[in-house]
Design a protein around this nucleic acid. Sequence first.
DNA 1: TTGAAAGCGTTACCAG
DNA 2: CTGGTAACGCTTTCAA
Lengths: 337, 337
Amino acid sequence: MKNQASLKDIAKALNISISTVSRALRDTGEIHPDTRKQVLELAGKLNYKPNPLAMGLLKNRTQTIGVIIPEIENNYFSSILRGIDKVAGENDFRIITCYTGESQQTEVRAVNDLMFSRVDGIIACPANDLTDYQHFQELIDAKIPLVHLDRDCIDLQVTKIMTNNYTAAFIVTEYLIKTGCRRIALITNLEPLSVGRQRYEGYQEALARYGIDFNRELIVHSNLGISTSMEGAKHLLEFSPLPDAIICNNDTVAMATMKVLKDNGLQIPQDVSVVGFSDDPFSSFLEPSLTTVSQPSYLMGLKAMETILAMLHNEIPLNVENRIVMDSAFIIRNSIR
Amino acid sequence: MKNQASLKDIAKALNISISTVSRALRDTGEIHPDTRKQVLELAGKLNYKPNPLAMGLLKNRTQTIGVIIPEIENNYFSSILRGIDKVAGENDFRIITCYTGESQQTEVRAVNDLMFSRVDGIIACPANDLTDYQHFQELIDAKIPLVHLDRDCIDLQVTKIMTNNYTAAFIVTEYLIKTGCRRIALITNLEPLSVGRQRYEGYQEALARYGIDFNRELIVHSNLGISTSMEGAKHLLEFSPLPDAIICNNDTVAMATMKVLKDNGLQIPQDVSVVGFSDDPFSSFLEPSLTTVSQPSYLMGLKAMETILAMLHNEIPLNVENRIVMDSAFIIRNSIR
DNA sequence: TTGAAAGCGTTACCAG
DNA sequence: CTGGTAACGCTTTCAA
């Protein structure tokens, strides 16, 4: 690789000192206009750019933010990522992304890697199966700005950007009840940190509010992949009477569920209502079009990165618990009555 | 941020020199077993990790690869990204990702940013509207390992990993012809570098081979977004006789097209056959299930990163044109006759 | 077997 | 207004 121009190159060519060049380029301190002009001119010609490694070493700053997300082939997360990237780009920050596959072990490794890459901050959506928050606590102790997305590590003193999953699930369930559904099933992830668990609680609250008995059999666990979701849906079809509504933890699960229902000759929504979460781009193109809860993923990404920047500028404190709850929207289409 | 342990810290604590610590840690040169043991022990306790900034500055190497892709909210690209990330992670490389939105201007900026971030190599899927390859040529001139994905910048001396779009389109068109289609439309992107253009040529070749007149009216341009695709499909419905098949440049376009056809009371595939490209996860769940061409995006990602590594290890030359063509598969479902 | 010193590119401080 | 020097953390000579 051809070496890029350094301050030294410019200094040597102009027969002045490195410090003078540095000052001229940054327009700091007193400097003779002529010198300054010369330097700027040559720097332009050589296409000089400061070496971020040297700056990073000196300032203990890398202008890099680490992002940890469970997966990428999911519109929800890629949309968050786009939001983060937007703000980062505008503020001259780079992003390093790590994927955990919802595994605690991989996540711990990612945090360590990023920490030793000297990132200036970390935005993380913790893995569902997380039981030990030690690695995040280390980040907090090291005073590295940290923002959590979507999932709520109880008692962790960190800024958390989330949507109102509890409320959204309550609203969905209530709506289904009002359209006459009584046996409302759930295909969801119930792992400790999952949004599924928050929704599960909103669902239960709605049932209670309307005096409908909670039936544990109607809760089916899924890892949110297509195949386990289809299995989950098939499992629900073994009950009699059948569920009259199924709330799915995301649109992929809902898509898989609809497929199973239709393959078994059931009509949606006449026989069974189906609701998803996240409003993926394909959702309105399913048949029937899928009723879902849209989440402000892009905005969450923007907000997360803005929060990190604010922390870096000492505009907000680091080690306090702070929940920023963003609104989701119930989008009613044709998969419910 | 709490400062992480450095060689100096260890040296001071053990009352030995920095060089000795460095050697002990890397097990290089002669060193007293006892000294070595002490150093290793303390390094472990302090959780010492070498500072990548210092190493990068010294070796002019960052262990970072830049990835430039048009967009992220698209399964094809996120799947490529996952492949790249897999190999990168296994080889202790970090990834910085930039999105261009298919804009030449943004791409040029991304290349410059990455170059001045001192990345060790770049994997790029060039923007469709690219007419000037100057920024890539600079990379080549600077001897920075570069791999191109999917799109073919003519005459650029670079390794290109692509799928056989021409052949795939030929096979699709041929198959449609054999099922009786004669008025085969195309909703596609025809910009210079797009895979759409390669497919356009395979399509034309198939028509010619089977003696079917080429009809310019049946070619509709789309930016591959949902709304322009729907407009494109509507436009096709104005013709009489109607097209009896529509080949779409990706599955999102196909999904949008199917929606328009169905909204207009047309039966798929009885009235119109529809084919997509890329085999997105939702494709088999559409109604009818979508016939498409699956592309080995994950494998392409793996291959791209492996190629960069091989270049970095001087196992393959940098500045030669090298086309690696990977096979795609025609997946026949129910949206064609 | 170990230590001292130079150097990677930059900024900050102190002299002049 | 300008130059020299130390420092960031590391590896690599060269000497001892």
